[in-house]
Design a protein around this nucleic acid. Structure first.
Length: 505
RNA sequence: CGGGCAGUAGCUCAGCUUGGUAGAGCGCUACGUUCGGGACGUAGAGGCCGCAGGUUCAAAUCCUGUCUGCCCGACCA
């Protein structure tokens, strides 16, 4: 009998984190590379996770008064040119449609035949096309606020792509709102940030820091950009969601204006905000281990998987019947306002291999039932978050405890991630400490190092130079932190708040 | 767009230096033995050796061109 490897995933996180990530995506059957450069195929298991993210967030948006709508994939090129910073920011990564219609070419194959009068760009984000529409919709203060969201795909022609974290085409939601006053727009911006943080922490079990981006990291065209920042297991930061206060920049560029109660024509205040399939990448890198994916129960497509064990047709019938019965019993239980999601895996493959597939796919609870269990009215239960083979439990007791067990797994994952982040966070008050913190011991093959460093800073050329050299970025200035006088570790200038610094994805 | 590397079975790759019947592992199919943490055996299916040209009796192998992909930089939800 062949000796199984120690871990399902090779290399382990410590050995080679980026490669480990790719292997988890593959082993968990989440996605694969496609025939189109930089674009991935999201497989059913991975897509189900995204659907659960979509469902969860969508409910939160609706509960706060937002409605879904859909705008075109194509944007006339001239629209993008209206807001100067916006052009600057996105022009480089736009895919452009210049022709329609294909005809047979002179040497076989097809050639584009008819050039477009005005090229269309494939949306990298929809501020411009949605803004142009809003300009028509908004005439009176009575038309406001407009609170819209769309679930869509966008394209950004990135040069380096990584599954889920950065792909040429990705799925996301983008919220776009219009308000009569600055205060209201700002309130919206912050409300959405809170929703993102709530969702990240309570549904994804991924701790985040809410903060504001510095000028250099801001969304092109925004006045303020806020983000939620998470820390992955390699101690690098991941921007997991952004909420932008656009001020009147876009409304001026696109003439979104209205008559207020005094009859004066004024420009509206707009916001935009989004999270993408990148969240799936964050989910993977927050919880998964050297045996593969680990899913928080609230997002797991299956929260419980039942694995029948039998050797022959005589055993098969009773075991499968018991599985069906168990499935119904578990489904009658509720977790997080919904019936517990259960699947039976009765595929005709070896039990051991089947079991490992579910380990690698991160199913929170695995239940094995064989002939011996039928006699003793037991089930064999394994939790993905604690690892190990599992243990026998009385069937009735197990069923009764399912919701509580799922809840324990959910909070265990969050606590574990939070603990790692806290252990990997420090305050640094000198440039020397900062440099040491972010310099790997072995530059040829950098080990996992660094983390989150809270430092006083003043945005400027000294800082920029040093960050570039160390490949560190300012993630955000946390908005929940107290003000505290200090001095910029780069320039020595006085500072009132600390920023969070980290290497980042 | 600069610098490095690679295209051979579904996947990962060997073979190329020194030209001579197209290979391995994994995966897949069938049968048997197995089965409570990744099984094993036997038999099979599966190929435009990226593409085009050249050298040669003969090219996966040598030469030229070309296309595509990957890695490292600049850019980034």
């Amino acid at each position: 009998m062949a000796k199984p490897p120690k871990h399902a995933i090779s290399p382990t996180r410590d050995e080679n984190y980026p490669e480990w990530y790719q292997q988890v995506v593959k082993a968990a059957d989440l996605a694969e590379t496609s025939d189109v450069r930089g674009c991935m195929v999201i497989k059913p298991w991975g897509y189900s996770i995204w659907e659960n993210i979509e469902r969860g967030l969508d409910a939160m948006f609706k509960a706060t008064g937002h409605e879904n709508a859909y705008f075109p994939l194509f944007i006339p090129m001239s629209f993008l040119e209206k807001e100067a910073e916006h052009v600057e920011g996105f022009a480089k990564e736009c895919a452009v449609v210049t022709h329609h219609r294909l005809e047979p070419g002179p040497e076989g194959g097809l050639v584009p035949a008819a050039p477009l009068d005005e090229p269309l760009i494939v949306r990298p984000t929809s501020e411009t096309i949605i803004g142009a529409t809003f300009a028509r919709w908004v005439q009176s203060y009575r038309d406001l606020p407009i609170l819209l969201n769309q679930w869509a795909n966008v394209v950004r022609w990135e040069l380096r792509t990584r599954m889920f974290l950065r792909t040429t085409e990705f799925l996301w939601q983008e919220g776009h709102t219009v308000h009569a006053t600055e205060a209201e727009a700002m309130e919206e911006t912050r409300k959405i940030l809170d929703i993102y943080a709530d969702f990240a922490e309570n549904t994804m079990a991924m701790p985040v820091i809410k903060g504001e981006k510095t000028a250099g990291e801001r969304f092109p065209g925004a006045v303020h950009t806020y983000s939620i920042e998470a820390m992955m297991q390699d101690r690098k930061a991941l921007q997991a969601g952004t909420s932008h206060f656009l001020g009147q920049n876009f409304s001026r560029a696109q003439e979104i204006k209205f008559q207020d109660q005094q009859g004066e024509e004024v420009f509206a205040w707009t916001t935009s905000w989004g999270v993408s399939t990148r969240l799936v990448g964050g989910l993977i890198m927050t919880h998964s281990d050297d045996d593969g994916l680990v899913l928080p129960p609230k997002l797991a497509p299956a929260q419980v998987v039942i694995l029948p064990l039998y050797r022959n047709d005589d055993e098969r019938g009773p075991v499968l019947a018991a599985c069906q019965a168990l499935k119904q019993q578990i489904e009658s239980k509720r977790y997080a306002d919904a019936p517990v999601r259960v699947r039976i895996d009765d595929r005709d493959i070896r039990g051991g291999e089947k079991n490992w597939q579910h380990v690698k796919r991160g199913v929170p609870i695995r239940v094995t039932i064989g002939p011996r269990d039928l006699e003793s009215d037991q089930v064999f239960v394994a939790r993905r978050d604690v690892g190990g083979k599992g243990e026998p439990v009385a069937r009735a007791a197990f069923v009764e405890a399912v919701p509580q067990t799922l809840d324990e797994i959910q909070s265990n994952l969050f606590q574990r991630a939070l603990t790692l982040r806290e252990q990997s966070t420090c305050q640094l008050d000198s440039l020397a400490e900062f440099e040491e913190y972010f310099t790997p011991a072995n530059p040829d093959q950098p080990e996992i190092h660094g983390g989150l460093a809270w430092c006083h800073f003043v945005d400027g050329p000294e800082m920029e130079e040093k960050l570039k050299q160390l490949k560190v970025t300012v993630r955000c200035v946390p908005i929940d932190a107290e003000e505290e006088p200090g001095r910029c570790i780069f320039s020595g200038q006085p500072s009132r708040r600390r920023g969070v610094f980290a290497k980042a994805y």
